[in-house]
Design a protein around this nucleic acid. Sequence first.
DNA 1: AACCTGGTTATTTTT
DNA 2: TAACCAGGTT
Length: 724
Amino acid sequence: MLDSVSSEPSPLLTGLNEQQREAVLTTDGPVLILAGAGSGKTRVIIHRLAYLVREKGVPARALLAVTFTNKAAGEMKERAEKLLGGALESWICTFHSFCVRLLRRYAVEAGIEPGFMIWDADDQLEAVKQALRALALPEKLYPPRRLLSDISAAKNSGRPPRGEEGSPWQETLGLVAERYQQQLTASRALDFDDLLLKAARLLEKDERVRTLLRERFRYVLVDEYQDTNRVQYDLVRHLVGPEGNITVVGDEDQSIYSWRGADINNILDFERDFPAARVLRLEENYRSSQAILDAAGALVAHNRQRKGKTLRATKQGGDPVRVHQAGDEFQEASWVVAQVARARGERAAVLYRMNAQSRLFEEALMRQGIPYSVVGGVGFYERREVKDLLAYLRLVLNPDDSMALRRVVNVPARGIGERTVEHLQQLAAERGVSLWLALQQADDQDLLPARAALPLRRFRELVLQLQKEAAALTVKGLLERALHLTGYAAALAQDDSHESQDRLENLAELLSAAADFDAREEAPSLAGFLDRVSLLSETDLVRGDAPVVLMTLHSAKGLEFDSIYLVGLEEGLVPHSRSHGSREALEEERRLCYVGMTRARQRLSLTWARNRRVFGQRRPSEPSRFLFEVPRAEMVVSADDDYGAPEPARPPRRRFEREPEVVVAPAAAELDELRPGVRVRHPLFGEGTVLQSEGAGLEKKLTVTFRGVGAKRLVARYAALEVI
DNA sequence: AACCTGGTTATTTTT
DNA sequence: TAACCAGGTT
């Protein structure tokens, strides 16, 4: 296997270090590549794919690479195609999309409906609530979210709950899980966990399919192996078989998804599971400065659950890691934003433990007129109007999807009340059919509640009409038709509130997303569109253009920035209070912190606030223990000026959207000067020229071009512009 | 069926 | 604190 190295060095190997070359060339049998943060992992993977195709003559369609995010898959595919100079026929996709493709293709063998819908987290939660209602169990005693997470945990471990266990909770869990699953079945739908579970079962049970797939996929690669759960592990094992070529790439120090069922032992025990395994390490780091690596390395060295590796920096020196202690969370945000404003032109990220922390940073950035983007939070596809429209599309494809039906049966309002829906629901439960079928039967047998009969019939006809038209339409065309036929657009247009305006804009964006899909996809279909939307993740939608990005530590995995601000490093937050007590959980928190630190190329700042509002109450905080695990010599410590002073009185908080606080804005006299052609200075973008301006006063909207940054649209009120 | 209100409740992290 | 829900009112 190594003979091609000596005979003639492949051009695919140039620019790779010794370890990377070996990782590219070691293609056969089980291989574990331990890839440290910033060690050029993706590069190795794409060179490996190219090497297999070009040098070893393996047909591209025999290669399968599985990742966790669409973004990673997309990037991998794109770069591999660029390297090979042509379209690549390999499957490079996420675990979930791989399963969907498999299940759509082998639905019969898997024993599921070919046209299944995918339920999202909202649908799942709603289904659990329904189950509780049907069982006459109070939500207070049985929190739906906890039930759902237990159901999901059970599915991810490969053993769906049964109600046989002893404890009352387990018994209830079993009952609820059973009802929950019934609803999925009646709706011809699968939840996220089912996608993996059914695919794994299919491979386990059906020898023909298994053989077929093993023959097809002769080289399988799994990225981020440290984040695989039990079911994913089973899936991979069935897919590969004892003689297969399996390569897994991962880093045990970056395993941060145990709460979603990921099992760090999958990577730690790889050599036990595959005794013939070759283990290769990538320990040369091309991303971060020496100072950053030393600090991060010292931190993670406190973990016991690891194979252990030492990253070597290729960049020497660099700024020391900064630790800043702020008086409170407001000052923490101001400090960070001041630092960001000072370092023009570099890309920075603020990383926090939980989404709720983003707001203060958003407000501070907005006040300074610094453009930013937030990853996560309320995503585009989670907005009500978007989900409503998508629900109509789901009904077109599968009217039995009861969650979709429930969602829009009275949206926009058409006189179908809660009681009517409940009545139908009961009917459906009695007969063990979907809501749609119950509706149909009730209509045919004149069982509909008198007052709602007409609107219900019209709703039914509406769905049928959309179904009839769907075949001849593009996805965008169908969306437009749905907007019109349902009266959704009209209802929004009639109401001229700011909110409705926003919604219409979002729907317009949905239309353009659909148009984009129609144009780009080879064979665009409604099913394909819905699948893609369901499998989209938060980080897939990261906009890369903003100079500052705000996100959780979890979503930062796999990304890199010039500057990293790791904020809220306090006991109870990082490590999170829920992780106190168990060593495993604490180690995961430490890894989370490690992941955050190793995102930084040039500068790393760690901040904490001496007191912070928690549960709406101000409480003093302790610095995170992780701060003490980084050697003092690596750090420069600073503090707010009023460190130790009594807590200053704060004006009552005001919602920024309603009443913007002008902190730094052009002086009033300068507002009129902001005309096209005028030179201005921005704290972040540097000097630029006004290209265009519309409106007047603080509401004035400006288009300004900055050197090296391009044109930016700014609102005068927020823009910290200075006329020069 | 939409709106209001007061009380309760919660905070990880998300493919 | 603020988001959410159940229950009541219009």
